[in-house]
Every structure is written in C-alpha cells, then in structure tokens.
Design a protein around this nucleic acid. Structure first.
Lengths: 240, 240
DNA sequence: CCGGAGAAGTTGGTCTGACCACTTGACCGT
DNA sequence: ACGGTCAAGTGGTCAGACCAACTTCTCCGG
C-alpha cells in the first residue's frame, strides 16, 4: 500500500474534531449546554488550554455560543455554520453522505457555468496560456485522481478569471469539501474529466470572450458528470 | 439614541482581529513569516496562550499555515479562505468595499433564483404558512433595516425549503457578510424590499410548486435591487 | 574538498496552577 | 413581595515551565 503521511493531530485538533462530531451527529443537540471547560478537560484527559483552543474554533465555526459566566450552548449548525463545515458533513466518519454529495454537485452545476461566463467576459485572452497548459496536463494525467486534480486546477484558473471574490471563496469552500473525498469520487467522475475536447472548447470560448458559449459548454461538461453521479447515488439509495 | 450592546471583545478576539486585518490588508504578504508567538505576545502585550488562541483561529480560517518547529507563514487568502472572510473584506475598517459588495450581489442574484426554484420543487405547500407570516411582517415593518431583516427571514425559509445543505451553508455565508453592513445597505436596497406584491407572487409560486415561475419571480425581485445598487456603485466609483 | 552526523538555537505544542470577571440563583432583610 | 447581597460555578487571562520538531551551523571523517 502507499505510505501515508503520519497523522499528527495536535491535542486541540483532536478535541476540536470530537466536539464537532458530537455536535454534527446530534449527540449535543441545539440548545444543550456543553460541559464546562474544566469538566471537558478532565473527561478528555487534556489540559484546559487545549480544550479552550478547540472551543474557540468550534465557536468560530458558529456551532456553539459561549458567554462568559454562563455555560456554552450548542447552536443549530444548519443555521449558523459556514461552508467550512461541508467536508465534515460529506465524510462523517469516513463514509460518504449521499444527500450531502448530491447537494454539493447541484451547487457545482449551478455555479460553474456562471463562473465560466464571468471569466469569459472579464478575463478572456488573459487565461489563454494557463488554461492550455492545464488542459494538456489533464490529458496526460494517468490516473483518475490525477485527472481530478488537474480539473480542479482548471476551474481554479477559471474562477480567478471571473474576478469575483464571493464566487472565489465559494469555490474554495466547495473544493475544501471535495478534496478529502477525491479518492472516492475521482473514479466515479472520471467520465467527465476525460472529455478533453469539451475542456478545450470551453477554454477557447472563455479566451475569445464568448460568455454565452462558455456557459453552455460548462453546463454540458458539469451536467453530464453530475447526471452520472446522481443516477449512481440513486442506485445506491435504492439498494438500501 | 438606541442603546447598544456593550462591545466586550476578549483579548484573543482582539488579537485575531488585528492579525486578520494585517493579512487581508497585505501588511503581511503571502509567503511572509509571521513573528513568533512569543514575539507577538510581547509586542501586543498579552500572554502567549491568548496569541495562540487567536492564531488557531487564523489558521482555521486558512489564512496562515503553522508548522511545528518552523515559522508560521502567511497564505494567499483568496486561494485558501472560506466565505467566512467575506464580512471582513466587505467592511475593512468600517468603509464599504464596493468591489466586494458588487461581487456579493452578483452571487446573490445568481443563487437566489435557483434556491427559489428548488424550494418550489421540494417544499411547496409546506412553506405556505411561514412565508405568509413573514411577508405580512415585511409589509408591516416600519423602517428599512427592519424590512431587510424580514426579507432575510423570507429567504432563510426559502433556503430551508430548498433542502440542499450546500446552498444552505452558502446562504449562511452570504448572510453573515451582509448583516454587519445592513445599516448601510438597507436604505439603498429599500426599493427591492418594498415590492410586497412580488414577494407575495413568489411565495405563491413556491407554494404551488411552480419552479420555473418561482425562479423568474426571484430573478425579477433580486435583479431590480441588484441593478439599482450596481448603478449606485458605479456612480460612486466615478466620483473618485 | 565534500558530505553527512550532530549540536545548538528557534519555533510551535502542551501542561500546571493560579487568579480575574461575569452570570446566575439562592438567600435574607426590609 | 421586593430589592439587594453573596456564594458558587463558568468562562477569561496570565505566568512560567517543559516537550517536540525543524533549521542551521559546525565539525568530523571520508
């Protein structure tokens, strides 16, 4: 097997992960009071500063509300969390959550074409060289995961060209959710990523500033991949 | 004047804010090494644990990379940050950043109609009562800011109905960016939020499961507001 | 001369224990 | 019944120490 980087989670990381999992799984329900920092430290066998660092991050993620002098209470993560929670929702405990995957693909399918359109209108020829290089690399990539990586680079450049910070950060969020699942999703989405001609056409449309064309091609590209995966998901769901 | 909640930033909060500002403003450029924790603690006049809590959050936000034994280095926030950075980009130091505002409105205009469409297809009649209540409240709201708040509630319910966690979290991100600026943007967007009939029609389309209709109405609603603000922005930019 | 082992120094990681600040709720006097 | 007081519990902050990992420089052996 391929050697993996030794996971060296720091103590606060581990605590963070655990609290997050308990909140997301509903172990700690919205409105519940979290155990006090001292109690958590005792139960988890770590120091209070470690617990505090973890809680800070949980709070920053919007999952709990801490008030000095009062207990820390759990909030509804669906109402207050940001997209940075997506990865943990997509792979809770290693298994892919299909409804989350579907939701992410929907978002991708909806946002991608718009970004391509904006890139065509705003960047145009400026993207010529980088896109060409990336498509070449995509064509040469040997394995599905490698192809996914190149495809991500492709879209990263497109998003850059769209010159919209909101879409840019949105993309970062989707990518962060997707990357940990790349080993699982790569092979499933391989059909999309081997349609080199479509990537070439899309790049060409963007370079010539053809917003409508870029949009259509992106819809084609992402739509096919999405459809394939969605039907795969449906099949899996029916098996249950 | 209206009484305001006393702002009581904790020490780590203040440190976090300051580091964030320096990174976003480019004071600390990507690739730069951050001062060591001890040095920061000394310079800022706070304890090292306080600095650490702040740095943890900065790192969790994707703005820096910390490696044990090595210096903490700044990353390109446009590449690695999530949407939780939007509020700070929109209001860096109190003043509205127009290009960021434009970008957020673009995203809203693009995502809103899709969410309305999904809500119509997936929630339908279930949203009837809550939407009606909210529209009534929107009609009764006396001031622009109050209307904005009700409009946010309206969209919150629509997003709930869309039943897509990715769009839900995306919405949370946009809302978090928008809310701090609500005092500034509320009056400017008031034209959108006083078109009660359109809200009623949109709610009706959703309730009757008319996806295409809901989408069209949402485009109309958000498009008008967006156009108004975009031209306002353009005017401001030309004044400079 | 060159390459690698090793020592020193710097950086982040973690812990202990103490004390401050705030909130709550029970208690007590009016 | 009301108002204030106080004790207990919670998060907020600090100081200082030590551990662990990386970088760099040095020095030794080939």
């Amino acid at each position: 097997m391929a050697l993996q980087r030794v996971a060296r989670r720091s103590v606060p990381d581990a605590v963070f992960e655990q609290i997050l999992a308990d909140v997301v799984s509903g172990e700690f329900a919205p409105g519940d009071a979290l155990p006090s920092e001292r109690r958590l430290a005792e139960v988890l066998g770590v120091s209070r500063p470690a617990v505090r660092e973890a809680l800070q991050r949980v709070a920053a993620a919007g999952l709990v509300e801490v008030r000095q002098g009062d207990t820390t209470t759990v909030r509804d993560y669906r109402r207050h969390a940001g997209m940075d929670l997506l990865p943990r929702l997509l792979l809770p405990g290693g298994e892919l959550d299909l409804s989350v995957a579907r939701s992410i693909l929907e978002a991708r399918l909806h946002v991608g074409p718009k970004v391509a359109e904006l890139a065509a209108e705003r960047a145009g020829a400026r993207l010529g060289e980088p896109l060409e290089t990336t498509v070449d690399a995509l064509e040469k990539a040997a394995d599905p995961v490698g192809r996914q990586r190149q495809a991500l680079t492709f879209w990263e450049q497109v998003v850059d060209g769209a010159d919209s910070i909101a879409f840019r950060l949105m993309f970062n969020g989707l990518r962060a959710a997707y990357e940990p699942a790349i080993e699982v999703l790569g092979p499933v989405l391989d059909a999309e990523v081997t349609r080199i001609e479509v990537y070439r056409s899309l790049a060409a449309a963007i370079v010539r500033g053809d917003g409508a064309g870029a949009r259509r091609l992106a819809e084609d590209l992402l739509g096919a991949g999405t459809d394939g995966l969605l039907t795969a998901i449906r099949t899996l769901e029916e098996q249950e």
